[in-house]
Structures are given as structure tokens and as C-alpha cells.
Simulated scan of single mutants.
Amino acid sequence: MPPFATVSVLVPAAGQGTRLGRGPKAFVRVGGRTLLEWVLAAFAWADEVRVALPPGVPPPPAAANVRFVPGGAERQESVARLLEGAGGDVVLVHDAARPFVVPAVVDRLLAAVAGSGAAVPVVPLPDTLIEPEEGRYGPALDRSRYALVQTPQAFFREVLAEAHQLARAEGRTATDEAQLVRALGYPVELVPGDRRMFKVTFPEDLALAEALARVWEERPE
């Protein structure tokens, strides 16, 4: 990152955690801390951290660089609200459901975004990938052609703002910000992610998260 750049971290944390079944996901506890607390600790270095909370949920205690805003009905709306007040030259958009942030991945993202303006972490698919056919085993796909996308995702703030503006004008939604930026015709660079940065989505993910929390270090390699 250039020494003059400032970084805003945007954390959409307004999800209700329907698939997990434990209430608002950001406040589910793992290793003695909520998922949101894990994330805030990981980005304590940032110039600012902006968090979108579920409606009616009071802001928890947080550091001076953390700001809370009401979240939207969908993730994309929450990110747009967070982006409106962000002051960083670069924004990192990170899922509150990914409690374990590997610093080396963030370093790779910041180095990449400084040159490209948009970068996301990915990991390869480890399993056989098929297209099911009416509940039966279908054609196998070439898994080497695909990758799993993680967060945080890094963008020049102006680029992401333009992407959200275009999406609103066209009534288009996406499951992550990289799709919106790509729709501008803007290239999004890929950097190696880390499987420890998995997303807590299903009940069985909590067991994995609890196990990882027991051995997690402040600065994992």
C-alpha cells in the first residue's frame, strides 16, 4: 500500500443467520467471543471500521475507530450504507461470518489493490464438483476452472461506489462486491486466500470454528 493511503473496513453484520438457526449471526459466540468481536479484533489496525447491524440491535462496546450503522434488508444494501460514510482511499469489505482473518492474506490484498484497484482472495475447490440431475449424480465439472471466493475484498473506494451506483440504477443484485465491480468492466485481481478464513454458515461450521479458536494465534502465518 502507498504510505498515504487510508483503509476503511466495511462489515455487513445485519444477517439474521437463518441457516445457522442461532439468531443474528454476528452475535453467535465462538471461543468465548462473538463472531463480530473476532472480526473487530482482526481489523483493529484499520483507520476506521464501519459495521452494519440488524435493525433494533444496540451497538456493542467497541474501539474508537469503529462506527455502527443500521443494516439493510439485504447484504448489498448494508454495504451501500456503509460505503456512504467511508473515508478510506481503499475499502475492505469483510463478512462478519468469517471470524478468522489471516494477516498474510490481507497483506496480499493491500499490495494487489494498490496496483489494480480491485482484488479478492480465492481458494481452489478440493472436492469433485458435479451438476446434480433430479437428485441423482450428474456430469462432473472441471474443478480446476473454478475457485471459491472469500473476504475481505479490497477496492478503491471510488470504484466500489461507482459499482454500487450502477447496480442501483440497473436494479441488479449480487452476492459480493466483486461481481458489481466486474459489471463495470473493471478487472478484479485474484490473490491466494486461506482455508482458515471459512464462512460460518451451517451448524456444523460452529464445531470447526470452536476447534480453530482454541489454537488461533494473534498473528497466524
Rank of each mutant, 00 (worst) to 15 (best):
E217S: 15
Y186E: 10
W38G: 03
G32E: 15
R196K: 08
Y186G: 00
L83I: 06
L20R: 11
T34A: 06
R172Y: 02
V93H: 03
P152W: 02
V90E: 08
F100H: 04
M197K: 13
L110N: 05
L20E: 04
E189P: 02
P126H: 10
L208G: 09
D194T: 11
M1W: 07
V91Y: 01
G193N: 01
A163Y: 01
E217C: 10
F43E: 04
S78L: 05
A26F: 05
Q150V: 10
A163D: 07
A5C: 09
T173N: 13
F202T: 07
E133F: 08
V90P: 10
G115I: 06
F68E: 02
L36S: 05
S8V: 11
L110Y: 11
P220K: 02
P55F: 02
V191Q: 00
R143M: 06
V30K: 03
V39C: 08
A42D: 08
T173P: 00
P60T: 09
R214C: 01
F198W: 05
L125W: 07
G56A: 15
P55L: 01
P59Y: 12
Y186N: 01
L129G: 10
A154D: 07
F156K: 14
A207V: 12
V69H: 10
G193L: 04
L180V: 11
F155W: 05
L148D: 03
E134M: 06
E177A: 13
W216A: 14
D127C: 01
V49H: 15
T201L: 08
P59I: 06
F198E: 13
E133N: 04
Q76P: 06
E133Q: 07
